[in-house]
């Protein structure tokens, strides 16, 4: 069977579900962050596939912007995690409950 748009979209959906599962299940702040990266990558894959099969380059430009913003987001998020760890000595979400009502 010839590989078409739906195959790429299926891979993208499964990867997004994996990332979401990681965000919900894991308790380590850094692994949660990696799962977020997985979800961003799944969106990128869907955009590139749509761009290829609709004969439009705009999707790839959007992926370029997403990669840039993701790099900025990772740097700020990791700086926040480091600042948090300095104060609390923990990168575990169950130890960070001071905002819990």
């Amino acid at each position: 069977m010839h590989v078409g748009l739906e195959h790429y979209l299926t891979v993208s959906f499964l990867l997004f579900a994996l990332g979401l599962l990681g965000v919900i299940m894991r308790r380590n702040l850094l692994v949660i962050y990696m799962s977020l990266e997985l979800m961003l990558n799944a969106a990128n894959l869907a955009l590139v596939a749509f761009s290829r099969f609709n004969n439009k380059l705009d999707g790839q430009v959007l992926v370029f912007f997403i990669i840039t913003v993701a790099a900025a987001e990772v740097s700020v998020g990791l700086a926040l995690i480091v600042a948090l760890y300095r104060r609390r000595r923990s990168a575990h979400v169950e130890d960070l409950t001071s905002m819990k009502f």
């Binding site: 962050y33 990696m34 990128n44 590139v48 790839q60 990669i67 840039t68 790099a71 990772v74 990791l78």
Partner: peptide, 20 residues
């Protein structure tokens, strides 16, 4: 998407993972 493949390896595998 050859350009994006290169950017993906450079930015993600090169910069983001090293930061992690």
């Amino acid at each position: 998407a050859f350009f994006l493949a290169a950017v993906q390896i450079l930015v993600y595998a090169g910069a983001v993972i090293v930061l992690f």
